[in-house]
Design a protein around this nucleic acid. Sequence first.
DNA 1: GGCAATTAGTTAGCATGCTAAGTATTATAT
DNA 2: ATATAATACTTAGCATGCTAACTAATTGCC
Lengths: 163, 163
Amino acid sequence: MTEITNLTEMKAMLKVPLGNQIGRVHRLWRSAITASVQSLGMTEARWTAMLHLKMLGEGATQQALAQELGIEMPSLSRTLSQLVEQDMLQRQPHPTDKRAQCLYFTAAGQHMLAQLIERTMQIRQALYQDLTPAAVQQLMQSLDIMERNARTLLLATATENKA
Amino acid sequence: MTEITNLTEMKAMLKVPLGNQIGRVHRLWRSAITASVQSLGMTEARWTAMLHLKMLGEGATQQALAQELGIEMPSLSRTLSQLVEQDMLQRQPHPTDKRAQCLYFTAAGQHMLAQLIERTMQIRQALYQDLTPAAVQQLMQSLDIMERNARTLLLATATENKA
DNA sequence: GGCAATTAGTTAGCATGCTAAGTATTATAT
DNA sequence: ATATAATACTTAGCATGCTAACTAATTGCC
């Protein structure tokens, strides 16, 4: 409620191991997804790639999808190869840039996608239980701030190593 | 501020991909730790194990530490072997239970610990920037709720698979 | 007391993140 | 116009989580 945060509060804040807690929740969330989709022959990484490609729209390049997911190209590249292998996706040459690949769902992929979306909603419903919409909004915003801070920090150390 | 959350708000909440965001923040946080401690010959997993053993107190068993960290024994077992190899920790037989191992810092480990704590504080300071103590508290509580929900969900699907 | 179930720990192998390094193409700068 | 830099992607190998399966010790039940 108070706007002014005193020194004691600031120091106490630094004792909170948010990073570890975020890690724990992430692992649990991954387990939940894995349990939910493995009977479909899916894994968590493939599941995310499918859903985010849908959000981005078919025809997106791998680079664009990696950006959207917040992972590096090599990580995505492997996952996409598995999805292509499973006949969920196709890689098509980019119309003008011969380096790039554009991503499209196969028919089987479209069908899988529908099931994945359904299960995603079920899991979210379970995980957001007892959280108010306001709390979810707040959580999202605080995580956004941490994400920005982390990127800034990493950029700073990277350039300083370069110097 | 409103206590009553309407249906529209609830449905909108389910569209928020918190899991993915938590994953992104977790990866960034891990990168930040890695960048900070790798010059000390440490990694993120070893760093966490060291700090949490300190919190738990020397003499803790591996099982207790795994519980504290929220990871499974095999994951921890490997990390601890690396720390023993690096002469940071020692495994001592439990005084009464011959199955169990108790963990103690070596002198080198104590010294490392001091440096790790220092760097941890620096990183938190950077990552919590622009977050109020209240926001940090709120974040922690919301993550707690998600964590509990996830455990409940996983337990439910596990027993249902057993049946 | 003695066998069954549980618990602590390990090893093996998979999933998924990363960086480093290599190829092919495109963009830039002189 | 060409040489250099940047970009898109892949491959290889490490870090760290998991489950499955194993051993050894302990607990519990009759």
